[in-house]
Design a protein around this nucleic acid. Structure first.
Lengths: 211, 211
DNA sequence: AAGTGGTCTAGACCACGCA
DNA sequence: GCGTGGTCTAGACCACTTC
């Protein structure tokens, strides 16, 4: 078993490669065919977080396509936060949709604004743990579930862009269950659970109200 | 003037190329150097919406780099919605940051989901024009200003992701001033004023409440 | 017909991190 | 050292659009 030589079918990398199919007749480009299939495997849970994907060179050779094409696929998945790269360690599945306690990394307001060449800032107006029957109902939680309520104003180049009231279901985010300490939890929320409210620079306001 | 032959300095494309500089010593990759400079020109208003950029091949030759590198730069700017492509017409500056009456194109929920290989849908719960003192106040408008109130649930692969209540300041969006007719106005809002609420698929809910 | 962007190839060199 | 991803090249063919 462990010293298997050539044709071991249990090598997860080999298995993965065997499941990938490229259709030369399709009008869909190779890199999108690959992306779609890998995407499905990740979303479907077949490829769990932490799994090492074949290196760009390995997959390219196996699929008999150019490394450039594989890289393009990986790059798109990377920018979708589904893959991450660890130099020597290769490419790793990062964020399965349903079960990563760290939650998928999201496009943050700050990031978005930086890409647009603006500097962003946030002012926190309120922050507290509350129980709110109607919100809990949205989450399909018991009405006494603890909820984190966060009110903040986000600004781009000093100009207020949005005012948000964000509700977080604490029971659904294990990392935050002992959040009462406050402080770091907030930074975590802001960084990894960041909610993006994009809008033009007219006075258009995005609002989610309580039911 | 019009029949200038070889060395006319007034050709906007030539001017643009002359203003672009690549530093081979820098650790910053070429494609990022280009992107940064073009980005600054667009954000700064030097390159206005509708301007035609040099074709990938032209710029590559002028900068003495590979077309692939130019393309990578253009591609990133395209995905940032700063450039758009018109097959034969070349690559065009799309969205100046501050002054486009059609409002900047925004990353839409649908687009975002499609990139992640999900199909998205939206269900509209409520939609109407109202006057709301407190919201109008946010917009710095008279308390009787007409506001469009839109409640919708966005879904990815059939799973409800967010519930939004969006308020639009009708007086700030000339295109919508005669919105009362309803219908097309809503599609316009959804398409061009689209509000993006990104989040993980845990039960984390983004909410903006009335003050 | 000509030029555009979209895709793809088969190489190359680099910096980095792990063994 | 050696394999990884990051960058870059010089070329190719395609579909499409405008001329």
């Amino acid at each position: 078993m462990t010293s298997g030589g050539t044709t071991q079918g249990n090598d997860p990398v080999t298995d993965l490669i065997n499941r990938l199919q490229l259709n030369a007749q399709s009008s869909e480009p190779y890199y999108l065919q690959l992306k779609r299939q890998l995407n499905a495997m990740i979303e479907g849970g077949d490829l769990k977080s932490g799994v090492n994907l074949p290196s760009e060179r390995t997959l390219a050779k196996a699929m008999q396509i150019s490394r450039t094409t594989v890289k393009r696929c990986y790059d798109e998945l990377r920018s979708n936060r589904l893959l991450s790269t660890h130099k020597r360690g290769g490419t790793v599945v990062q964020t399965p949709p349903s079960m990563n306690p760290t939650l998928g990394r999201l496009t943050g307001f700050t990031e978005e604004m930086r890409e647009q060449g603006k500097t962003s800032s946030t002012r926190e107006l309120q922050c507290g743990v509350v129980a709110e029957r109607t919100i809990a109902c949205i989450f399909k939680r018991p009405s006494v579930s603890p909820l984190l309520r966060l009110v903040r104003v986000r600004m781009a180049d000093g100009m207020p862009m949005t005012r948000e009231v964000a509700w977080y279901d604490l029971t659904a985010v294990p990392v935050l269950e002992d959040w009462d300490a406050r402080g770091s939890g907030y930074a975590f929320l802001q960084d990894t659970c960041g909610i993006l409210l994009v809008r033009a620079n007219q006075s258009i306001e995005a609002v989610m109200s309580t039911p």
